Amino acid sequence: MSIQHFRVALIPFFAAFCLPVFAHPETLVKVKDAEDQLGARVGYIELDLNSGKILESFRPEERFPMMSTFKVLLCGAVLSRVDAGQEQLGRRIHYSQNDLVKYSPVTEKHLTDGMTVRELCSAAITMSDNTAANLLLTTIGGPKELTAFLHNMGDHVTRLDRWEPELNEAIPNDERDTTMPAAMATTLRKLLTGELLTLASRQQLIDWMEADKVAGPLLRSALPAGWFIADKSGASERGSRGIIAALGPDGKPSRIVVIYTTGSQATMDERNRQIAEIGASLIKHW
């Protein structure tokens, strides 16, 4: 058993032996400061991975655009179909130039040979490839079927209504393609630790998130040596930015963190910096 498999397999085991986890309101002070700095709403939640207890939250039940963070949920739905014998990670999917949409750094290189379902999930999560996400959405029946999958998990909040890139429109008060921090954190925890997916599929999902290559300026920039993080970021119109993550010290995840912001006029660099500073406060007061 690899170190990674050891880590995921023991998450339920550690729940019975973990020390009490204490919240630190200092992080919420930073979240509120980020709102002031960005001139935008910020949603935040910090969840204990083992118990599911909410440690801190700010606007946990307000809607925010999901942006590309939905791609983790999408690959969770794909893995659920794999577990049920309805899909194979090794199945190759062929597509054409007409299928390519904006920001497809991986799929645009494989027009001649296509990509496997496994490769598409990797591209969608680690590189946020939009065509990969659309191709995967097609395999499960489209955005409405992803919403149905989430409903069956008990998440009646999170919804996907459109495809890439239209889902990134982020119109104020538009509930399409949105979630709430509390709903996203709970759903992510179920995917990573619950019985919905097999152990192998849970491991695969967290491996893809751990290999994320496009979230460096966010929480990863504040991470001390030896800490673990598996994450997925997102960005969209109207100053929207977000990240969902499982992270913790000693090389294993122990908390879920979800951060969303929307409605800012700030630059992408400034949005990144504010999220990184929230992460730094979280780690300092861990």
Rank of each mutant, 00 (worst) to 15 (best):
S80L: 12
A182Q: 13
L74H: 00
F17C: 12
S57C: 09
I229S: 02
D177V: 01
C18A: 14
Q88I: 12
D212L: 00
R255S: 02
G251I: 05
P253L: 07
D113Y: 10
I54P: 07
T112P: 14
Q4T: 14
H156C: 12
R41K: 13
S240A: 13
A40Q: 07
T187E: 00
H285K: 07
R255Q: 00
N168E: 02
P181S: 02
G239R: 05
I278F: 04
V214S: 08
H110Y: 10
V42T: 04
E119V: 00
I243V: 11
M67S: 05
A84E: 15
D207V: 10
Q265P: 11
E237V: 08
L136E: 00
I256C: 04
D269P: 08
L219R: 01
P12I: 15
A246V: 14
N173Y: 10
L47G: 02
P172C: 09
A276C: 11
E277K: 07
D48G: 05
Y44Q: 01
R255H: 03
R238L: 11
R41C: 05
R7L: 09
A222F: 07
F13W: 15
A235R: 00
L55Q: 05
P224I: 02
G279S: 08
I256G: 03
G242A: 10
A211L: 08
V8L: 15
E175N: 11
L73M: 07
T178M: 01
V29W: 12
A246G: 04
I11Y: 15
I206Y: 15
I256D: 00
A246P: 01
L219E: 01
L38I: 08
E108D: 11
V82T: 08
I229H: 00
A16T: 15
L10A: 13
G279V: 07
S240I: 10
L197T: 02
Q88W: 15
R41G: 03
F13G: 08
Q86T: 14
L89R: 03
E277S: 08
E166C: 10
A40V: 07
P143W: 00
N134Y: 00
P12K: 11
E56Q: 08
L49V: 09
D113M: 09
Q203E: 11
I171M: 14
L73T: 06
I256A: 03
G85S: 09
S2D: 10
W286S: 00
T267A: 10
I243H: 01
S68T: 00
D113R: 11
S104C: 05
L137F: 05
M180R: 10
M268I: 12
M66C: 05
H94C: 10
L136H: 00
S281R: 09
I206S: 15
Y44W: 02
S57R: 09
P253G: 06
F70Y: 06
C18I: 11
M180D: 07
N130D: 02
P181K: 00
V106H: 06
F228V: 05
L150A: 08
M153S: 11
L146A: 03
K53G: 08
M180V: 12
E164K: 03
M180W: 09
R7H: 12
A200D: 15
L47A: 07
E87G: 03
L38A: 07
K53F: 09
F17L: 10
Q86K: 15
E164L: 03
L38G: 07
S236R: 03
A124R: 00
L55P: 03
R238M: 13
S122T: 11
L10C: 15
A182T: 10
G90F: 11
V72L: 02
F228Y: 14
D174N: 05
Q86N: 15
T27P: 15
T261A: 11
M268T: 07
T131A: 09
E119A: 08
L218T: 03
G52C: 02
L19A: 15
T112I: 14
W227Y: 04
A183S: 10
D129S: 01
N152F: 11
A246I: 13
T158G: 04
P181C: 05
I206R: 10
I11L: 13
V72C: 04
R189E: 07
I256M: 04
L167M: 11
L38T: 08
T138K: 15
P172L: 10
I229V: 06
E175Q: 12
F70G: 03
T262I: 07
W163D: 05
L10Y: 11
A245G: 06
L10S: 13
I244E: 00
T107R: 02
A40D: 08
L223T: 11
T179N: 00
I283A: 04
D174H: 03
G279C: 09
N168G: 04
V42R: 03
G154T: 00
P172A: 11
R220C: 02
G251S: 09
A183H: 09
D174C: 04
S281N: 09
P181Q: 00
I278T: 00
L223Q: 03
V257G: 00
R220Y: 00
K109V: 11
P60F: 03
T267W: 03
L137T: 04
R91A: 04
H285N: 13
L135G: 05
H285S: 07
M184R: 00
W163S: 06
L73P: 11
L79P: 00
R118I: 08
Q37L: 12
G90S: 14
E145S: 13
N272I: 03
W286E: 00
E169S: 12
T158M: 00
M268D: 07
P65L: 05
T179D: 00
D129R: 01
P12A: 14
L188I: 09
L247V: 10
R41H: 15
L136I: 07
R202I: 05
W227L: 00
P181H: 01
D161H: 03
T262D: 09
A40K: 02
R238V: 14
